[in-house]
């Protein structure tokens, strides 16, 4: 506090008055974009190459290499058959990848996003038991599994991955590499999604709403 009362207020007022005439520091954002830091870490995006096709092949290598497991990815495999996923079960990530696929312009088969069919895990476990859970015998395990199920169900691949401690990417890579291994059942065409149930539900809903309004 000063000897003269009010001198502090006067000093403050003079400071604001000086600032009134000084150049302003505001960055006019939409016209002047703010500069991005050299080490800026934004959202990882790996959507298209220059030809407009998806860059990411969902090989999971980046996700496996990430030390703090922050990469969470999912999408169609390269042959467009199965939906594969790495990371915590977060529906947000799923939706994001799905929308990326849609924006890529490719047809997106909806069944890919449904849960895969349940399988009899005991069969897989006994096969694994036979092979002593040895990842080195992966091809043998896969062949035996295919013999048991007639093809390689996703659930079986996941079970193998879980029990042998091998990355799913490696198992999936092996299974899709060999021509004699099948990832889908023979001659079982995927049912095209039909709009009829949705329309029926819609009609029911609107009908119900109409009745409600009447009452």
């Amino acid at each position: 506090m000063n000897l003269i009362p009010g001198i502090g207020i006067v000093r403050g007022m003079s400071l604001t008055l000086r600032r009134f005439f000084q150049p302003k520091v505001t960055i006019r954002y939409p016209e002047v974009p703010s500069d991005v830091a050299v080490k800026f870490r934004g959202r990882l995006q790996l959507l298209y190459d220059e030809n407009g096709s998806l860059k990411c092949e969902t090989c999971f290598q980046c996700a496996q290499a990430c030390p703090i497991e922050c990469i969470d990815m999912g999408g169609m495999d390269t042959k467009g058959r199965f939906h594969v996923h790495w990371g915590a079960a977060e529906t947000y990530g799923e939706r994001r990848e799905e929308s990326a696929l849609r924006r890529s312009g490719r047809p997106v088969p909806d069944p890919a996003y449904e849960r895969f069919a349940p399988i009899d895990i005991a069969a897989v476990d006994s096969i694994l038991e036979d092979f002593d859970h040895d990842p080195a015998q992966l091809l043998g395990i896969l062949e035996a599994t295919q013999a048991a199920f007639d093809y390689l169900p996703v659930g079986a691949l996941k079970r193998i991955s879980e029990r042998t401690g091998t990355g799913y990417a490696q198992i999936y890579g092996t299974a899709s590499f060999y021509g004699h291994l099948r990832l889908g059942a023979l001659g079982a065409p995927a049912a095209a999604p039909s709009a009829a149930p949705y329309l029926a539900a819609l009609a029911a809903a609107t009908g119900a709403a109409g009745r409600q309004a009447d009452a």
Binding site: T16, L17, F20, Q22, K24, V25, T26
Partner: peptide, 10 residues
């Protein structure tokens, strides 16, 4: 406007 100028804003 005046308060903005005194705050060094636009």
């Amino acid at each position: 406007k005046i308060i903005a100028f005194m705050n060094l804003r636009v």
